[in-house]
């Protein structure tokens, strides 16, 4: 009976299951995956924040109207601010045109002016401020400036274009850094797998020699090696990805206020998990698959190259 069981369970002629360095490879790949998860999260966070910030800054126009309460003409009851508002609302390329209320303006300037403005005792003449969304192309903005200058001379039109350009540069450099880290981590993981495979080959040289002599094809030897290394690397990738999850949740919580993205009303771990981007949720699985793929490819290549030494 025991012999029947023995014959039915495919044995392991190369002795891969008896490897002594399995845990080391799994641990190193897990550490690499942990770093990769952080880099991936950095990339995702940068993209999300940039999309959020740029989405706002890129299309925002701020129009300042000096002396907003003054009449447009001596006999007219229309103020400069109203005239500019009317002109802006007639622009088909603009939307969301609205003037900031004194309270909003006071809140905005509070860091510089304190409560002085809101209490009405400031001696500073503040401009009227109008916010709008629309075309911020330099030509369009220049045309708008010209038109508004005729209605309310001295009116200023500012865009978020400069800020958006700087944000874009910052985002791209952060994303490039994250991609470079991922590449370095993948290269280190591949090197570690390569070293581990070569150590495994050296350890099993005699067994491989014997099996080769019995008529095993190169793929008969390389495939079990690649499967075993892929299994170990995949396990390492999964463990590293899972270990990174709590850290990512914590970092995500820290960055939440920075992102100004609405979060779940509920509190606790469940809410935190719900707020995580899908890519990060899938991170451990993605890392497992990528690590397994790297392990499989490196093991196949290394073993097939090594077997060339045999006749």
């Amino acid at each position: 009976m025991a012999n029947q069981r023995r014959s039915r369970a495919r044995p392991d002629p190369i002795g891969l299951r008896a490897a002594t360095h399995d845990r080391l490879l799994i641990a190193v790949v897990a550490a690499m995956s942990f770093l990769a998860a952080l880099a991936m999260a950095g990339n995702v966070a940068t993209s999300t924040l940039a999309a959020h910030w740029l989405g706002g800054a890129r299309h925002v126009l701020t129009i300042e109207v000096p002396d907003p309460g003054a009449s447009v003409q001596a006999a007219s009851r229309i103020t400069r601010l109203d005239a500019v508002l009317t002109a802006l609302r007639q622009q088909p390329a603009l939307s969301g045109v609205r003037a900031l209320s004194p309270a909003e303006l006071g809140h905005l300037l509070k860091p510089w002016l304190g409560d002085a403005r809101t209490s009405g005792d400031a001696g500073i003449a503040l401009p009227g401020v109008i916010m709008a969304q629309g075309d911020t192309h330099p030509h369009a903005v220049a045309a708008l400036r010209q038109e508004l200058d005729q209605i309310a001379p001295g009116a200023l039109v500012e865009t978020g274009g400069g800020l958006a350009a700087r944000l874009t540069t910052l985002t791209e450099s952060l994303q490039a850094s994250a991609a470079a880290i991922l590449l370095i981590v993948a290269a280190v993981a591949a090197s570690v797998v390569g070293v581990s495979v070569r150590a495994g080959l050296a350890q099993r040289r005699e067994a491989i020699d014997i099996i080769h002599g019995l008529g095993a094809r190169d793929r008969d030897i390389a495939s079990p090696f690649a499967r075993e290394i892929a299994r170990q690397a995949g396990l390492g990738g999964l463990l590293g990805g899972l270990a990174a999850l709590p850290v990512l949740l914590w970092l995500g919580r820290l960055a939440a206020g920075f992102a100004l993205v609405p979060h779940s009303a509920a509190h606790g771990v469940g809410a935190m998990l719900a707020d995580m981007p899908t890519l990060l949720w899938a991170g451990p699985v993605v890392l497992m698959l990528v690590a397994a793929l790297i392990g499989w490819v490196v093991a196949q290549t290394t073993v097939l190259g090594w077997l060339r030494h045999l006749a």
Partner: peptide
């Protein structure tokens, strides 16, 4: 060449058995 080797049986002077396999599994290898 691997397929050709399968048609050749070899008894080595130093036996060249796989120590982590049983007698049964060693013989079953080919």
């Amino acid at each position: 060449r691997a397929l050709l080797r399968r048609r050749i049986g070899v008894v080595y002077q130093d036996f060249r058995l796989l120590n982590h396999l049983s007698a049964f599994d060693n013989v079953a290898l080919p």
